[in-house]
Nucleic acid binder design. Structure first.
Length: 212
DNA sequence: CACCAGGCAAGTA
DNA sequence: TACTTGCATGGT
């Protein structure tokens, strides 16, 4: 299992190269994107981010100044815009309260504590919390999203009905606990889905992972 | 036209 | 605990 997990990673890395990921300019933008992409295609999230950037509303202070209704209007293309505007406000409340809006001030907080705190924010579930932890706070947690699940299923790492924590444990207990490794691995899984094929079927002829 | 996309919370039994 | 439902846009 462990060897296979690394073998698959090596093959992906050889095929796609280093990702060093999350398509965003700043940690705050990562966090915002993580909320916006909940059950939503990244293509639509990009439109929302584009609107926010156009309104010069991607800094903490600018976001704070936006009335929730205006925020909802800007993120409309990302779908669920009323609920997501509310979730973003909750997140901003949290970031302001805990770190004065500067994510780098979380330096002392342990990863476990930070995760619990994020999960206490209404609208932040396990995947959103872990995406923020890994890609905005540079903490070593493995992100389990729809891609990760599909990937793990297709490659026989899981049966399919495991809960979030179980899937995450599978990856984290079999890989070296390392921010860069977790970053690259998850990014490569996403890349496989987006650039290659959405089913990432290891048995299809052109799959980069064929024959592992 | 139907179905999907990098979830989450609230309601029900 | 284990389902079910609402939330919504834009691409295929």
């Amino acid at each position: 299992m462990r060897k296979r997990l690394y073998a698959v990673y090596a093959r992906l890395f050889a095929r796609f190269g280093s990702q060093l990921w999350w398509p965003a300019e700043t940690p705050l933008e990562v966090a915002v994107g993580a909320v916006l992409t909940q059950n939503t295609s990244w293509r639509n999230v990009e439109k929302a981010i584009f609107n926010l950037r156009g309104a010069k509303a991607l800094s903490f202070r600018a976001l704070r100044r936006l009335p929730e209704e205006r925020l909802a209007e800007l993120i409309r293309p990302a779908g669920y815009y009323n609920i997501k505007a509310d979730r973003l406000v909750n997140l901003l409340d949290f970031l302001g309260r805990e770190y004065g809006g500067n994510l780098r001030k979380a330096g002392n907080t342990s990863t476990a504590d930070l995760r619990v705190k994020l999960l206490s924010v209404k609208g932040i579930g396990p995947e959103t919390a872990d995406s923020i932890l890994l890609y905005a706070f540079d903490r070593p947690v493995f992100v389990v999203d729809a891609y990760t699940r599909r990937f793990a299923l297709r490659h026989g790492f899981i049966k399919g009905d495991e809960d979030y924590a179980s899937v995450q444990k599978l990856f984290m207990q079999n890989l070296k606990c390392d921010v860069k490794l977790f970053n690259e691995y998850h990014a490569l899984i996403v890349r496989l889905n987006k650039d290659f094929c959405r089913k990432n079927d290891p048995f299809c002829d052109s799959c980069p992972l064929k024959g592992i």
